[in-house]
């Protein structure tokens, strides 16, 4: 429907053009995906194979050695756990809070509503560079301030601050993008739904949970996928807010795995580490790529 095939020409010509395009696109596709493909193949090569035949694509013989080395040299299990907890918390709260705010903006009428909408949307224009230093200081000082407020005995205060899941996630528990995305969808739902729910005596909260949320499963799961992708890939914030090995996410873990073996880098183990880090998002891409691509194209949201 889009790019001009020479459809009025004889059939043989079309077949030739199709073939040329087919070869071109497969070649280009392989070039684009090449860094991922060679990382995966190299992670299965033996050490000798990597140094002796650095430029062959396939391993001479396939081995799990690099994965074992990487797993033993660095607590990847702990990093994965941290990343899943960190991303899980961010997805859960961002989606939940976005549902609440989007609901208020699309179904409730109250004073200052539009102003609040622009206030929330405006936060998209504030670059992270401006906020990350004050946020770092604020989060680092949380335990002290918490104890000052709740007394020295307040045990939960040690769970705030740097090197905690709370500190890793708290600046990202709400997002203007999520609110905007869900509001767009909620606005497309018929207003009659709300009216009839009110006539039936249902509270707004019940209407939200029993009618709006089930109808918006598609948008909510799209938002969850995006949020997970961007949380999983976060780099600068986890880098500065954790210095305890136990609390690192996979992204920071792989960086230190690289930095700590600079003398003679074991590239096979490093590629095994890279595969471990990208596997969850790669699988998500293979499972949900249509939804993901459609969502990005519609919203211009960066995954």
């Amino acid at each position: 429907m889009t790019m001009p095939a020479s459809s009025s020409k004889p059939r043989r010509k079309i077949a030739t053009t199709d073939l040329v395009m087919q070869i071109f696109l497969i070649t280009v596709g392989l070039i684009v995906a090449m860094p991922i493909i060679i990382a995966i193949f190299t992670s299965f090569k033996s050490l000798q194979d990597i140094s002796a035949n650095p430029n062959t694509l396939f391993p001479r013989e396939w081995t799990w050695d690099n994965y074992i080395t990487a797993w033993n040299a660095t607590p990847f299990g702990r990093y994965l756990l941290n990343s899943f907890i960190q991303s899980g918390i961010i997805v859960l709260f961002q989606v939940l809070f976005s549902i609440f705010a989007a609901f208020a903006f699309s179904f409730l009428n109250f004073r200052g509503r539009d102003l609040m909408f622009y206030l929330i949307l405006g936060s998209l224009m504030v670059p992270f560079q401006l906020t990350f230093i004050p946020n770092f200081i604020m989060v680092s000082e949380l335990p002290e301030n918490c104890r000052a407020l709740f007394g020295e005995g307040a045990a939960f205060c040690s769970q705030t601050g740097a090197n905690t899941y709370f500190g890793l996630t708290v600046p990202f528990l709400a997002s203007a993008f999520g609110v905007f995305l869900l509001r767009q969808f909620f606005m497309s739902l018929p207003k009659d739904l709300h009216d009839s729910a009110q006539i039936d005596g249902a509270s707004n909260f019940r209407f939200l949970w029993q009618i709006v949320v089930p109808l918006s499963k598609g948008s909510i799961s799209a938002l969850s996928i995006f949020t997970f992708l961007s949380a999983w890939s976060q780099y600068l914030w986890p880098l500065i807010i954790t210095n305890d090995t136990e609390m690192r996410t996979v992204q920071i873990g792989i960086r230190f795995f690289l930095a700590n073996q600079e003398r003679g880098t074991n590239w096979g183990a490093l590629m095994a580490g890279a595969v471990i880090v990208m596997l969850p998002t790669l699988l998500l891409f293979l499972i949900a790529n249509r939804q993901l691509v459609k969502g990005i194209a519609m919203t211009g949201l960066k995954g």
């Binding site: 696109l25 684009v32 860094p35 780099y235 992204q251 998002t281």
Partner: peptide
């Protein structure tokens, strides 16, 4: 398949990009 191969960098983080490159 074309789309899969060309779109796939969207799920790769900057840390992994850095390490592979």
């Amino acid at each position: 398949l074309h789309r899969l191969l060309i779109f796939v960098p969207i799920v790769i983080s900057s840390a992994v990009t850095g390490v592979i490159f």
